[in-house]
Design a protein around this nucleic acid. Structure first.
Lengths: 140, 140
DNA sequence: GTCCCTGCAAACGTTTTGCACACAG
DNA sequence: CTGTGTGCAAAACGTTTGCAGGGAC
């Protein structure tokens, strides 16, 4: 998929040094950063990025739709640039690492719908990543 | 299922007036309150319940395991006393109403596991509840 | 030149914590 | 009597907002 930066510019999104850096943080597609992750990474390239600017930019980018997606995980927001294909998430319960996975969407039987109009479904697999499994094996 | 209060007492959990009231808030099983919901409801029966006590009690109750379950929804914690049977959630995107539903757990194909050890899976259906569908029909 | 983005700091809502006191066991 | 739950207030945390100034277009 095209980098987020390119896609933002196509949308006529106004660009500044800070916003460019923030967009570039999402270079890899299978990435799920919290606002603070983004801030830290942005500051490597440009130290005078403020927290508010990161939040503003992330909110603006997501508001454009279909460019950056928000996932609530564990009380924190995570931003995910992989909006091209539907996907679900695999999260490590120990280190919070999050990966995209592709599974068939579960179906909600009509009898269970309680009259609700289903919009979409989010599936999150809670798991332990190989590193944390290894770390646990050592400590025990 | 037995009321939460009974199950807490079986566990030898120390009881006070406040904790009893808090447990009684969860009388119905298919209930998903935020900490603030619990506080408000508890104060109907006993006005001098403090916010901290609600949080303490909720954290203690969940720490006992298998009595009260936490669900992160939209950046807020919700407490769910229905831990006897595995279930998933159906949430109204407009009014936040949350219901339990029972679906088959989706399976994550081995090729998608990335070496993670799966612990469990959470499924959340985002939907519009009948009331909010009706409200939308009126406003348009 | 206009409008919007920026940085700072302060406000916000939710949750946690430190403390002295009171009550359950 | 001892240990733990209580209320209060303050802090912590992630996020948002108000404002004056500056840079994109």
């Amino acid at each position: 998929m095209r980098p987020l930066l390119d896609r933002l510019q196509e949308r006529g999104c106004r660009m500044t040094a800070q916003r460019r850096i923030i967009a570039e943080v999402f270079a890899g597609n299978h990435v799920h950063f919290t606002a603070d992750d983004v801030l830290q990474r942005a500051r490597i390239a440009l130290p005078e990025v403020s927290r508010a600017t990161v939040y503003n930019a992330l909110n603006d980018f997501t508001a454009l739709g279909e460019l950056l997606e928000v996932t609530h995980a564990d009380g924190k927001k995570r931003y995910d640039p992989n909006v091209e294909q539907r996907h679900h998430h695999l999260v490590c319960v120990d280190c919070d690492r999050m990966l995209d996975v592709h599974t068939v969407d579960p179906d909600l039987p009509f009898a269970e719908r309680h009259g609700f109009e289903i919009i979409d479904v989010a599936v999150t697999f809670h798991a332990r990543c190989p590193d944390c499994v290894a770390a646990k094996a050592v400590s025990s």
